[in-house]
Simulated assay, not measured.
Amino acid sequence: MSSKRTAFATLLGIAGLALFADPALAQGYDSTTEALIQSLNTQLLYMAIPITVLVEGILVYTVWKYRKNDDPKPTKENRRLEISWTIATALVLLVVGYASYGVMANEYVAKPEEAYSPSEEAVEVEVVGQKYLWNYNYEDANVSTTGTLVLPRGKNVYLHVTSKDWLHALHVPELGLKQDAVPGTHNTIKTKPTSLGTYQLYCAEYCGVGHSKMLGEVQVVTQEEYQDWLDEQQGNSSS
């Protein structure tokens, strides 16, 4: 195959990768945040595999073809080839940048610019880390709990993460959630749980001798169960 045909095939293959560059929410994930992140990872993997196969194929072919060449000559200047791989590299970077920006700029992954409006049906919870446990304040419902964070499925959730003493980090891997807990500062993350279940929560920032025991749970329930739970907590606090 001539260098011209090789360059054309390379450019065509790289351009075709753009078909995978539009991040979309995948089915079967436990939150919108996790779906976005895993979708991006999958798209980048689909892009990396053909590029890897192409580069390694050219390398193996070259080694095999010239294995008996006892007098190798330096590569001659080939402007078409140089222009082709420069354009191909630029296309790869553009596609990766476009796909990544679509996810990293999404409010379910990046820090939302503002809290939800009164017209939006959402849940706001202040998450407070301290040595060595997690406290959750549902300020609108006047409910505070420790250990288990209860959230309704299918509703937007805003978690305002802070700390009572020093640095901690809220991390719920299965929901794609991670945020630093800094004293005197509230770092907000937004998500929407999409599956019922119980998920492990832990501190991802070393915070002392009890760090490994700074565990908790996130329990995602139906809207009816969530309301019943709120009513039960309010009843217990008033009695």
Rank of each mutant, 00 (worst) to 15 (best):
Met1Arg: 10
Ser3Trp: 08
Lys4Asp: 11
Ala7Phe: 01
Phe8Arg: 05
Thr10Phe: 01
Leu12Lys: 05
Ile14Pro: 01
Ala15Arg: 07
Leu19Arg: 10
Ala21Glu: 03
Asp22Arg: 07
Asp22Lys: 09
Pro23Trp: 02
Leu25Cys: 04
Ala26Met: 11
Gln27Pro: 02
Ser31His: 00
Ser31Cys: 03
Ser31Asn: 05
Ser31Asp: 00
Thr32Val: 14
Glu34Ala: 07
Leu36Arg: 01
Leu36Asn: 03
Gln38Asp: 14
Ser39Ala: 15
Asn41Tyr: 03
Thr42Glu: 13
Thr42Val: 13
Met47Ser: 01
Ile49Pro: 01
Ile51His: 04
Ile51Asp: 02
Gly57Arg: 01
Val60Trp: 05
Val60Phe: 05
Tyr61Ile: 09
Tyr61Phe: 15
Thr62Ser: 07
Trp64Pro: 00
Lys65Ala: 08
Arg67Ile: 10
Arg67Val: 13
Pro72Ala: 09
Lys73Ala: 14
Pro74Tyr: 12
Thr75His: 13
Lys76Trp: 11
Asn78Glu: 12
Ile83Lys: 02
Ser84Glu: 01
Trp85His: 02
Thr86Lys: 05
Ile87Glu: 02
Ala88His: 03
Ala90Val: 08
Leu91Lys: 04
Leu91Gln: 06
Leu93Glu: 12
Leu93Gln: 09
Leu94His: 04
Val95Gln: 00
Val96Phe: 01
Tyr98Glu: 06
Tyr98Asp: 06
Ala99Ser: 10
Gly102Asp: 02
Val103Met: 04
Met104Glu: 09
Glu107Ser: 15
Tyr108Lys: 05
Ala110Val: 11
Lys111Gly: 13
Ala115Ile: 13
Tyr116Lys: 12
Tyr116Gly: 04
Ser117Phe: 12
Pro118Ile: 11
Glu121His: 13
Ala122Lys: 03
Glu124Thr: 12
Val125Met: 00
Val125Lys: 00
Gly129Tyr: 05
Gln130Ala: 11
Tyr132Thr: 12
Tyr132Val: 13
Asn137Asp: 14
Ala141Val: 11
Gly147Asp: 09
Pro152Leu: 09
Pro152Tyr: 05
Arg153Met: 15
Val157Arg: 00
Tyr158Gln: 11
Tyr158Asp: 12
Ser163His: 04
Ser163Val: 14
Asp165Glu: 15
Pro173Leu: 08
Pro173Asp: 08
Pro173Trp: 08
Pro173Lys: 07
Pro173Thr: 00
Gly176Trp: 03
Lys178His: 14
Gln179Ala: 14
Asp180Leu: 14
Val182Cys: 07
Val182Trp: 08
Thr188Ala: 13
Thr188His: 04
Ile189Cys: 03
Ile189His: 00
Lys190Trp: 08
Lys192Pro: 03
Lys192Trp: 00
Thr194Met: 11
Ser195Val: 07
Ser195Leu: 10
Leu196Arg: 02
Thr198Ile: 05
Thr198Ser: 03
Tyr199His: 02
Tyr202Lys: 02
Tyr202Arg: 04
Glu205Tyr: 11
Tyr206Gly: 06
Cys207Ala: 15
Cys207Tyr: 05
Lys213Phe: 12
Leu215Trp: 09
Leu215Ser: 03
Leu215Phe: 05
Val218Pro: 00
Val220Met: 04
Glu224His: 07
Tyr226Leu: 09
Gln233Ser: 10
Gln233Met: 15
Asn236Gly: 09
Asn236Ile: 13
Asn236Pro: 06
Ser238Arg: 15
Ser239Lys: 13
